[in-house]
Design a binder for these strands. Structure first.
Lengths: 156, 156
DNA sequence: TATTGTTATACTCTATAACTATA
DNA sequence: TATAGTTATAGAGTATAACAATA
């Protein structure tokens, strides 16, 4: 602390997007170093999780929807994953325009390696914040997103 | 809908960071086109709001903290703002290393022009989701960030 | 003609390190 | 020596448009 410290900037954390960003940054601050250890970006991890969670093999379009990435971003990420042998890719025999993506053995192994740490971090947060409270918060977040999307339809 | 549609990818929206991201994207989806009209990025808007909310003129360090941007990003944004005459910049006479930043008349005018639309969007969200509920959610988000930061101190 | 996915391009932010000028 | 801020550099995502292959 010196004479030149000024009053901190306040009031604009009251913005909803900023509150969401701050909360997200707090959570990801724990997680990003873990991802970096495995040479994964946040977006790459989103793709891996989506692939891991998918009941079946998926096409690029489904991945775009699940990850909210743009097509060109996803194209590059998938190219990177192919180089690293994290995914297998085949052409849909029923529609040759489509790529069918699935996690390779190596890809599954990577998810299996990272995921437990992710859950440990999550558990820490649950302990600190309260499991029931966190559940309720997640529900509210989903409802909020849904409510906003409804306003989309009202004003196209 | 065609024969080739597959089961949607589920389950991983249960990730906290993803829930925060999705909610944020929903909110920002309304706001980004408005910013684009004024040639502003999300990060630039964050800086403008921070400057507008600041009780006094601020230095670069305070802006970094308020916006969670990195120094090099902020340096470029401030250079851009100077070109556009949105800010005034003076050297702190008490410490010549410091830059003192404040919004120019033009900068204040820009904030004044964009902010009402921002509030209109916010009002729409409030209506759809419920004002009290939104308030409660914001409180929870702030508490969550605080709780996570407490775990930081526990595990340095 | 429409759709799937890729390529091309320009811009911005992230992240780190090196550097300057003050203190 | 330490701090405030800038410059340099590499890498990755955002965003649009144009494109090839397939339907």
């Amino acid at each position: 602390m010196t004479d030149h410290d000024r009053a901190p900037i306040r009031a604009f954390e009251s913005s909803l997007p900023m509150a969401l960003l701050t909360a997200r940054e707090a959570a990801m601050g724990h997680f990003r170093p873990l991802l970096a250890e495995h040479d994964l970006t946040e977006q790459q991890w989103r793709v891996l999780r989506a692939l891991d969670a998918a009941p079946n093999a998926v096409d690029v379009k489904a991945l775009i929807e699940a990850t909210t990435l743009l097509a060109p971003s996803l194209t590059r990420i998938l190219a990177n994953f192919e180089e690293r042998d994290l995914i297998d890719r085949t052409v849909d025999p029923a529609d040759q325009r489509r790529s069918i993506i699935r996690l390779s053995k190596l890809g599954h192994a990577l998810v299996a390696k990272v995921a437990p740490n992710s859950e440990a971090i999550y558990a820490m947060i649950e302990t600190q914040f309260g499991a029931a409270r966190l559940d309720a918060l997640m529900t509210e977040l989903r409802d909020l997103a849904a409510a906003i999307h409804q306003t989309d339809e009202a004003t196209p």
